[in-house]
Nucleic acid binder design. Structure first.
Lengths: 339, 339
DNA sequence: CTGTTAGCGCCTTCAA
DNA sequence: TTGAAGGCGCTAACAG
């Protein structure tokens, strides 16, 4: 059986309270007693039972990370950041993978109970207002990572500026003299209400407008997320009478579909068609995809830090950290042939 | 404040014990009382505090999953299986990402303490004997998933037959008349002592021997895991006086490197070179890679089930479940030109 | 069948 | 500066 605080007290010839004070670094223990207790602790290889400690502290020492689609590399990168940062703290991380709206609701319901976790990190998953209320009612602090709803200013957030990212991508294409630039993305009304595609589209529009180019609705398509759907959409656009000379895809995965469509139609990239993606996932480097890189790992780290701060000081004002995005130019973008 | 068992007891006009019995489905409560208690529970929206419950049960109701390299798709697939299966149980899952041997040791040390978790799932990470001893000493049941050391029969295991997988891949190439078949893999003595590459090599050897083909040491190279290293190794082999007509790579990632090497040398795939990978990760489908698929997701599910079984009945004999692998033929393998 | 009591292991008053 | 006592919320053993 593992040693308890009582064993230590007995061995050191002191009361439990003293041992507790030593464990918790209380300053009001004489140097001498502290040493004696410490020796007993070492001798018995004593470790305080975390569960007992949680009960008496009234804290769970646990935080939850709720994220959609572990299959997506971007999600995993964020979680890696969270996991690394939690190491060394006294907190445990429990993760929830959400792949359907039902699972999302179930998970929020499960996590937003008192005595379950001390805080929650909600990653890339816009919660409904009643979910937020529930967390609030249970006074469980939350941090929203990669959730861009403007009305959520009363929560801690780590956001990426998708408008700026879309703008950068489009600007790049404009600068190398493209004029007919298409945009392919997820549907704007997916069941999770992801907003990235919409904001990236805004950036795209902004860049075109600045360049004095009218938005051509035929050059904007969206469908389910995934390579094959993107391939289909790209294929349609490339068969237009005036096809685009460049396509901006809202994710690297979709950019792969675009590349595939080009290949199937015998178009060379970047000579006949420029392609730009978003995320800079691992395979982007492999296929030489020009893309927009986000600070995914860092967003997880920062999010966790905000959450720990909020837990340790519940009166703290909600903070909002904006992560930067960065254009990564590789070999799928080049000036159009007759630019 | 959340309601406690006392509030419920008071409201229902019964003693605490009765409420506890209702919560824990004890049969010895009259239908009538049970209903009254249930009503109080509903009215107060009462939920037993999991931490208090853990303390008095002497269980943590938590299990750990320790896995290397969240960056690798195969690892994530296994974790997805674990995560899905734990949903609906009363257990929490805490995850540990191990990317260095130091982190591995630290994590084992952290997890193998009593009162921390009720069991651990060790994924793709051969533990040292003293780690296993420590888990044993703390009587924390473990399940090894994708850890193939033959001497570990006293532990619960979910294994994949890497020998058979390597054999299948090589057989396929032999059947379409290849004779000079190369093998590229991770180094056999990496710091984690992963064994998959070695066992797949055994399968490769076995298939060649059966076909009466001598093992040519020049056709077997290994280096660090990763695409670029694989590309380098493949490049060297393809420049041999008698280059291989087919290359079996121990992972899809490495197969990508091989494809890249072929492209750089102006070799067409599969006309000039057949390539086969291992894992069937997402991008394998994209590049049309022939590969060996493992039941990754299922291995996580099965592993968790074994662990829960072991926890609920510590006297149970260690079980060993073997997962199957399956050849997925796509478009990177074909008979050699002059077969 | 049901209420009461004594812990689970620890922290935090309160006295001393 | 230290020891003793009460309580965190729940379960389990014991009466009744």
């Amino acid at each position: 059986m593992p040693a308890t605080i009582r064993d230590v007290a007995k061995k050191a010839g002191v009361g439990l309270g003293t041992v507790s004070r030593v464990i918790n670094q209380s300053p009001q223990v004489s140097q001498e007693t502290r040493q004696r207790v410490q020796q007993a602790i070492d001798a018995l290889n004593y470790r305080p039972n975390p569960i007992a400690r949680r009960l008496s502290w009234g804290k769970t020492l646990t935080i939850a990370a709720i994220a959609p689609f572990f299959t997506r590399p971007a999600t995993i990168e964020r979680l890696r950041g969270v996991e690394l940062s939690i190491t060394g703290t006294e907190y445990d991380l429990i993760v929830f993978n959400v792949e359907t709206p039902e699972r999302r609701d179930f998970t929020f319901d499960e996590v937003a109970r008192r005595e379950r976790v001390d805080g929650a990190l909600i990653i890339s998953l816009p919660p409904a207002l009643h979910d937020l209320d529930r967390f609030h009612a249970a006074s469980i602090p939350i941090v929203l990572v990669d959730v861009n709803h403007p009305e959520l200013t009363r929560f801690n957030r780590v956001i990426v500026d998708d408008v700026a990212g879309g703008y950068k991508a489009t600007r790049h294409l404009l600068q190398i003299k493209h004029r007919r630039i298409a945009y392919i993305s997820d549907s704007f009304d997916d069941p999770f209400h992801f907003s990235a595609s919409r904001y990236r589209f805004e950036g795209y529009q902004k860049a075109l407008e600045e360049a004095g180019i009218a938005i051509d609705p035929r050059l904007h398509r969206h469908g389910d997320h995934g390579r094959y759907e993107a391939e289909r959409l790209a294929s349609e656009m490339l068969r237009l009478r005036e096809p685009p000379t460049a396509i901006f895809a809202a994710s690297d995965t979709q950019a792969l579909g675009v590349l595939e469509a080009a290949r199937a139609l015998g178009l060379r990239v970047p000579e006949d068609l420029s392609v730009i993606g978003y995320d800079d996932v691992e395979f982007a480097d492999y296929v030489g995809l020009t893309t927009v890189r986000q600070q995914l790992f860092e967003s997880g780290q920062v999010g966790l830090q905000l959450l720990l701060d909020a837990i340790s000081d519940p009166t703290r004002e909600p903070a909002c950290v904006q992560m930067q995005s960065e254009l990564v130019i590789r070999s799928t973008t080049a000036p159009p042939k007759r630019g």
